[in-house]
Amino acid sequence: MRPLEGLKILDLSRVLACPFASMILAELGAEVIKVEQPGTGDETRGFEPVVHGDKGDVSAYYLAFNRSKKSVTVNLRSAQGQEVIRGLAAQSDVLLENFPTGTLKRYGLDYETLKPLNDQLVYVSCTGFGMTGPYAHRKGYDTVFQAMGGIMSLTGERGGGPVKPGLPVADLTSGLWVAIAILSAINGRHTSGQGSHVDFSMFDGQVGLLSLAAARWFTLGEVPERLGTEHPGRIPSAAFECSDGKWVQITGSDQHWKPLCELLGLQAWATDPTLLKNADRLARREEVMQGLGDAIKKLSQEELCRRCDAVGVPAGPILDVDEVLGNEHVAEREMVVKYDHPLIGEFKGLRVPFRFDGLDDPKAERPPLLGEHTEEVLSRVLGLKPAEIDALRTQRAI
């Protein structure tokens, strides 16, 4: 048994953040019914890159965030389609949506309308800026939230301009926030006996990640400057270039300073009482970083990592994506999973990274074809007869 078996999620969301959240919960055992627009589906079904198969083409973007779900097509602009959603919501534990603020209210699918149908429903609204506040009706994407939430101002080389991280951090972390919100609300329902409405703002989610930067502002009134891979409050903590042009990230505390200096041949620094404490090294940042960099530049990446491992200094090679996915530890931990898809054959994905003792581990199943489960879900959950489903199709409600 997987941890979330028995939990039913009605997923009206599209694109990345919320589909990522519902995929995680699906692979933990929840039944996720993904509602998509008839004919086109989630717009990411048309996103690049495309996997070309013998029986058709599929978006790898869609595949990455929609495994293990059931696809039902419903026209939310149709009165009959809206009634289908109300029926499914009445039988669900969770409804997840990421429409612009106010959209579902116009369709009669907002929390206040659905609550009388199912007072235990956990209704999660994920919007750009939340249901309230001066930005509530503002539009935004991942990079906009990165920009406005502060992370982009912190990212980049010293003295250079702002840089976005290499992954859609705002979308991905919002998906994790949403998953936490759903599980929290479900647990709260066990105590209160009733559901709730969760108002999650992706902008709020990014502000909530400022953590150390916010603590420095609250404590020191400091607006952190961009430092590349360096840490504002710890030395050593940075990426260093090696003799072979490859890079290693070293992050250590006071107890690592002496062994690091010794493995680098910096004997004088290893015993210098004015460098034993982090605060003292911070005061001499330029000198210390230059000295470490010069010493490390004499060693290859492999040799530096070997020496660090031998004396317990935390260090790791900076790996490209292909190196990560081919890494021996990644293979041993079975982080790459495979599934068979009816259009493209075997394809790979990344597993939900949990291992359970006493419960079954997450299970990765293929993403659904558009509308693949419409008839099965409507007949099983709503009890509709084949003729009734055909009528809905004729009315273009599904």
Rank of each mutant, 00 (worst) to 15 (best):
54 D>F: 10
230 E>C: 01
196 S>I: 09
245 G>W: 01
36 E>K: 03
155 T>A: 04
138 R>P: 10
71 S>I: 05
88 L>G: 03
142 D>M: 04
304 L>E: 00
383 G>M: 08
23 M>E: 00
71 S>N: 09
1 M>C: 12
80 Q>C: 03
370 L>Q: 14
200 F>I: 15
332 E>V: 12
142 D>P: 08
210 L>D: 05
105 K>S: 14
283 A>E: 06
227 L>G: 05
126 C>I: 14
335 M>T: 05
243 S>M: 02
91 Q>Y: 00
148 M>E: 11
343 L>Q: 00
326 G>M: 02
222 E>G: 10
190 H>Q: 14
210 L>Y: 02
26 A>S: 14
265 G>Y: 07
201 S>N: 00
307 R>S: 05
178 V>F: 01
241 E>K: 15
131 M>L: 14
342 P>K: 06
152 M>W: 00
397 A>N: 06
190 H>S: 14
144 V>R: 07
134 P>C: 03
301 Q>A: 14
277 K>C: 13
236 P>E: 00
162 P>R: 07
347 F>S: 12
116 P>L: 12
366 R>Y: 03
392 L>I: 07
94 V>Q: 14
181 A>N: 01
229 T>K: 12
40 T>L: 02
67 R>W: 01
246 K>H: 11
133 G>M: 01
121 L>I: 11
247 W>D: 12
384 L>K: 09
27 E>Q: 13
146 Q>P: 09
318 I>A: 01
257 W>S: 06
299 L>E: 04
174 S>N: 05
397 A>Q: 01
161 G>K: 09
40 T>G: 02
217 W>D: 11
70 K>E: 10
187 N>H: 13
295 A>T: 04
161 G>I: 09
339 Y>Q: 03
185 A>F: 03
304 L>S: 14
278 N>Q: 13
162 P>N: 02
361 D>I: 03
369 L>K: 07
168 P>Q: 07
357 D>V: 11
365 E>Q: 08
261 C>R: 09
262 E>D: 06
303 E>I: 04
310 A>C: 02
164 K>P: 05
148 M>T: 14
224 P>W: 07
43 E>W: 12
357 D>P: 08
110 D>S: 00
51 V>D: 06
189 R>I: 00
224 P>A: 09
249 Q>K: 08
129 F>N: 10
156 G>I: 01
311 V>H: 07
329 H>K: 09
